[in-house]
Nucleic acid binder design. Structure first.
Lengths: 140, 140
DNA sequence: GGAATATTCTTAGGTAACTAAGTATTGGAG
DNA sequence: CTCCAATACTTAGTTACCTAAGAATATTCC
């Protein structure tokens, strides 16, 4: 019954677990896990942010990002405003309601990260990051 | 714009990439990526397999596994037969059409794994596996 | 300047995952 | 033996991805 280990299978299995976890506490039913992750990303940026940046950060297709951000706008977490310079792009702005969750979202993500890496040797974690960065490069 | 590295984000990003990849070649449009992964798992098992095993292997909820297996049954890759011993359980049997894809599915998975781990030091990969196994344990 | 190309985002339609609740069936405790 | 909890799976309804196709604006190249 024993099978050889496949990195791909491990990653998708862990990803499913993580999605459930973050869905469950993001942030206490006020938003979905995907929204929580995006909000966390947006809050950490300093300059202008566009949909393209979200697509890149989470490896999403444009259509997926559109839907996710549209929902976040409907729910009042963000606003999307047209840019004077380039009418194709829309700047993503976190608004009042989104900012209100700043601390909670940060705590959610940090807590998950702590739980995830519990008992992992720091050196090994460093190697883990190096390997997964290589894997991300390997898959276009 | 530089952010600290989060294992959780890396994993979900890589998972999205992998899903797209395996969707694209599983196996040349004859089945979905999820079906391909499950078929690969089923073909590697020796004894009886039940839905519960699939749920465990891929960290899926019962409802997700039901839908996935139902579709695979409709598509003619598997059959689910009632067990004499325990009427709650249904044994999953790969049928003709599923068996026909054995080589192709194996090649798909192996090819993806090779692409994924290209340029990764074997020792580092070993560490990667150890870390991700710990992470899987850390998240219930 | 105008035509082809590239970029950014949207729409439409589909699959795969989820939660929550439900249906049988089995096994155990009193 | 009966009732109650646990197990295995299903159904219903939602979100988050995807591909494919399209619209609008920018850019490049003659």
């Amino acid at each position: 019954m024993e099978q050889s280990r496949h990195a791909a299978r491990y990653v998708s299995k862990l990803s499913n677990k993580l999605r459930r976890k973050i869905d469950a506490f993001s942030t206490r039913g006020q938003m979905s896990g995907a929204q929580g992750k995006v909000l966390h990303f947006l809050l950490a940026q300093s300059g202008d942010v566009f949909q393209k940046d979200v697509e890149e950060e989470f490896s999403l297709r444009p259509s997926s990002a559109t839907e996710l951000l549209k929902r976040m706008e409907q729910d009042g977490f963000i606003r999307r405003e047209s840019m004077p310079g380039d009418a194709r792009r829309k700047r993503i702005v976190v608004c009042e309601k989104g900012l209100a969750y700043k601390e909670a979202v940060m705590a959610d993500i940090l807590g998950l990260e702590a739980e995830l890496t519990r008992g992992v040797d720091p050196g090994d974690l460093e190697t883990f990051f190096r390997v997964i960065e290589q894997m991300l490069k390997n898959i276009p």
